[in-house]
Amino acid sequence: MSILSIDDVRGGYTEVDILNGVSFNMEPGEIFTIAGTNGAGKSTLAKAIVGLLPRVSGRIAFEGEDLVPLAAEDRVQRGIGYVPQVANVFPSLSIKENLQVVAGVAKQKARIEELFATFPTLGQRAQTRAGSLSGGERQQLAFARALMPRPRLLILDEPTAALSPAKVADAFALIASLATLGVSLLMVEQRARQALAISHRGCILDGGQVALLGRAGDLLADERAAELYLGQASPNERFGQESAVL
């Protein structure tokens, strides 16, 4: 059974539809990348899945259960984690409080210790206010907060956008390692080539619709995708370096 099954999803913030019938499936353990130009509706789709979009129709099924009638806080309990594109930590809370505040976590103390072991910088600065962290540290905290309830599906909205080029490879390595631990990952990325390089499959969103859908390798090889959405690969592009960004 698909872990996530999106079927003819429409909706938006007001009466205007931003999503115009999006459909695709994700299999357990997959890394799935959503690419597309600015304003294509990528973040809006992520919000629709986690329950923050005011108006949604269609079907969004997680492990077979329709999420659409569920409130955002109930979707978390079902096993969906989310790292928003912006404002993804609680700035006036300390690092530790950002993790403690997550509701419904079994063995909370042990879980925090686990995450501090994964992100040692966070552990060393547990009492620091999140608002005073650097972009990279904040992104780590945003990951840790989303991982607190041990989600089976993690949705990442532009996880590398706030990072310096040197840290981008680390972030993609972390994302790949999460997948080996059994977490399925749905990732929105502007660095589409690098994201697809570690993904199993992906799609390209355009005007609130899926323009292309397929295996990551096929999308990277697709001339139309390359030309319209991914940017031309630079001749000496290697994984880990700053690649062509749309």
Partner: peptide, 11 residues
Amino acid sequence: DNSDLARVSGI
């Protein structure tokens, strides 16, 4: 701080 982030943190 952020009511949407609170909701997706299960609050």
